Simulated scan of single mutants.
Amino acid sequence: MDTFPTEGVELTHLMVVSDLEQSRNFYRDVLGAEVYREYGGTSCVLQFQGTWLLLVTGGGPTEDKPSVTFAPPGDPDRVSHQLTMRVPDCRKAYEILRGRGAEFLTPPNDRNGEIRCFFRDPDGHLLEISEIV
């Protein structure tokens, strides 16, 4: 019997960005992701905590996605997805990331069993650090 997913399947999170260099630098220098490969100034593959991040510049339809256009978020206050990082110490991670240039919406907030806070990448993608207490 065939099954999916099978061994060897890996997940890649794709994020459309407006400035590839600025976004690559954010994910590398602020979050500590490792650049794996770059493609012609239009995409960058990073490894981050066992996951692949693919940063791509926007673009129009192609043969295999004839009605799809890739574009960075138009309004950072309207979110359709976010990247959440579970951390052992949210307050400590907050201080480290702030020191690296991350701009948080608020300081860590204790939500009865979870401490969390949110920040954005250069294009407005919402990111969260979260600690279960």
Rank of each mutant, 00 (worst) to 15 (best):
Met1Glu: 06
Glu7Gly: 09
Glu7Met: 05
Glu10Pro: 00
Leu11Met: 15
Leu14Ser: 09
Val17Arg: 01
Asp19Cys: 11
Leu20Asp: 04
Ser23Trp: 04
Ser23Gly: 06
Asn25Gly: 04
Arg28Trp: 00
Asp29Ser: 05
Asp29Thr: 02
Val30Ala: 07
Val35Asp: 01
Cys44His: 07
Gln49Asp: 05
Gln49Pro: 00
Trp52Thr: 14
Leu54Ser: 13
Leu55Trp: 02
Leu55Ser: 09
Leu55Asp: 05
Val56Met: 14
Val56Ser: 15
Gly59Val: 12
Gly60Glu: 14
Thr62Tyr: 03
Thr62Phe: 01
Glu63Ser: 12
Asp64His: 15
Thr69Val: 12
Pro72Arg: 13
Pro72Glu: 08
Pro73Glu: 02
Gly74Glu: 12
Asp77Asn: 15
Asp77Trp: 08
His81Met: 13
Gln82Ala: 12
Gln82Met: 14
Leu83Pro: 01
Met85Tyr: 09
Met85His: 12
Arg86His: 07
Arg86Thr: 12
Pro88Glu: 02
Pro88Gly: 00
Cys90Val: 09
Arg91Ala: 14
Ala93Asp: 08
Ala93Tyr: 02
Glu95His: 12
Arg98Glu: 13
Gly99His: 08
Gly99Asp: 01
Gly101Met: 06
Gly101Glu: 04
Pro108Ser: 14
Arg111Pro: 00
Arg111Ser: 03
Ile115Trp: 07
Asp121Pro: 10
Leu126Val: 02
Glu128Lys: 08
Ile129Gln: 07
Ser130Cys: 11
Glu131Cys: 09
Glu131Arg: 08
Ile132Arg: 11
